[in-house]
Amino acid sequence: MLFSLDPRISRLELPESAPAPPDKAALDQFPTYEVFHQRKENTAYVYVGPVHAPEADVAFLFGKEQFSRRFPCTGMWVVPTEAIRVTEYGDDQQSVYDRLPLLPADVLAATDAAVTEAYDIFHLKKRGKAHTHVGQVQATSPEAALQAAKAAFGDQRPVVNVWVIRSTDLLRSDEADRDMWTTTPDKKYREAIAYKVQDRIDRFKQEG
């Protein structure tokens, strides 16, 4: 049996050595969702990173724990990674909209006739930074949404990369639940500012 200085570990009665377990099966860790947060009221949602989760509700919980635990947050969106339409990446200082191939006229014409849906558009302004929400457009497909985004937001520069997400694919925090974001001020002990150690050091030095 494995002996540890931590009695709780000794009590697990783990074997001293054991054969290596088989490699994990694919998707043992679940698919990924991408998470966006809003740091302050009335500011744009910004990409914060992925989480692995079996479904959107759980992804939201994981995202809340991972990305709002330590910093102010007033709202969160999650979306399955596979639901994001990604353009190619351009260089810093450029706009990928400039390189967008034009859709054939009949496709664009069909756009007007068919029933449109809302799409959310996110821009990456600089490589290494995070995608930021710029607004919504109405379109019949992600490709058409990208064209509409170019018309609506194409004057913003630079745009290194664009994410297009069908709005109904985003799970969004509810205004009615906004009190879920108000827990952080109680936990001063996890802020650097709560530790004022210099007084004690000075006193120690004086007492020498």
Partner: peptide, 25 residues
């Protein structure tokens, strides 16, 4: 041990139709 003890939770939550996609960024 942590991996083994959590395995049943992950199994219970598996979605049979899930597909792997690499995270984007």
């Amino acid at each position: 041990a942590a991996e083994e003890n959590g395995a049943w939770v992950r199994r219970a939550m598996q979605q049979p139709k899930a597909q792997y996609v690499r995270p984007l960024a």
